[in-house]
């Protein structure tokens, strides 16, 4: 039995190579942050989610979409239905063709997905000097390092690049971005948004909050998953213990 466990550990740790290899891509490894949603019992910090949603809507959403998330999903993280309806109604989406066959625009409703800032990739590139601001719905899952990387990226801008590094026109120097040259200018600035709960909007605070929010958009099932996981593991521990006792009993006449 001990051998099996050792082997499993060896096997699993050898798999870890995969992710570590790809974390190294030119940028520094971002610092690890203590997230409320990490760990076995982690849950999303509701106040942080709410602030993060505000940062996304007031800063990120001018270039980045959130196309996999529906407005109704915001209700799951503590927004009231009236609040979400108001947020949705700020955007317009194409309605079904009317009786004359014309397609008109209507305000977005709860069941609509977040409206992306650009109609297509070409429009996005045209408006951003050729760079394509990616959709953020899954960003935390789609980058090695996940939430730490995203937070690092947001606080990793350097006005003065290290000696000898020339930053081309239209690019910016970022410590944690692979290759260090990123088209996106530093999106966060001190007091760039005003938080309703009075929290001071430092760059790091906003980076933490919007990353928490985007961790939720990437893994909206996280809290339910971990809650269920605890129950499943407890159940399996008891079941396996009982099975072991039964096994010992059945085998006792052979020992």
């Amino acid at each position: 039995m001990r051998k099996i466990v050792t082997l499993l550990i060896v096997g699993i740790s050898s798999m870890a190579v995969d992710t570590t290899v790809h974390a190294a891509g030119g940028g520094k490894t971002p610092p690890a942050h203590q997230w409320s949603h990490s760990g076995l019992f982690g849950t999303f910090d509701r106040a942080s989610l709410r602030r993060g949603a505000k940062v996304y809507r007031e800063v990120c959403s001018s270039c980045h979409g959130l196309r996999l998330v529906a407005y109704r999903n915001l209700i799951d993280i503590g927004f009231s239905e009236a609040e979400v309806k108001a947020i949705a109604a700020e955007q317009e989406v194409a309605a079904e063709p009317n009786d004359d066959g014309d397609v008109e625009m209507r305000p977005a409703i709860l069941s609509d997905r977040f409206v992306s800032p650009f109609p297509n990739e070409n429009a996005a590139r045209a408006a951003n000097g050729g760079a394509y601001p990616p959709d953020l719905s899954l960003m935390v899952k789609a980058r090695p390092g996940g939430a730490n990387y995203l937070r690092g990226l947001l606080i990793g801008y350097k006005e003065e690049p290290p000696g000898g590094v020339i930053v081309p026109e239209g690019m910016n120097y970022n410590e944690y971005y692979p290759g260090n040259m990123i088209a996106m200018a530093s999106p966060l600035s001190e007091d760039g948004v005003e938080f309703a709960d009075g929290t001071k909007a430092t760059v790091e605070q906003m980076a933490n909050d919007v990353t928490t929010f985007l961790s939720w958009t990437a893994e909206p099932e996280l809290e339910e998953r971990k809650r269920m996981g605890i129950k499943v593991i407890l159940f399996l521990l008891i079941l396996t213990g009982l099975l072991y006792v039964v096994k010992r009993r059945i085998w006792s006449d052979l020992h």
Binding site: D18, H22, L40, L138, R225, K226
Partner: peptide
């Protein structure tokens, strides 16, 4: 329940 994407590759969420 606790590391569902550990053995996957982040690029496959792009």
């Amino acid at each position: 329940f606790f590391a569902p994407n550990y053995m996957g590759h982040p690029d496959n969420y792009i």
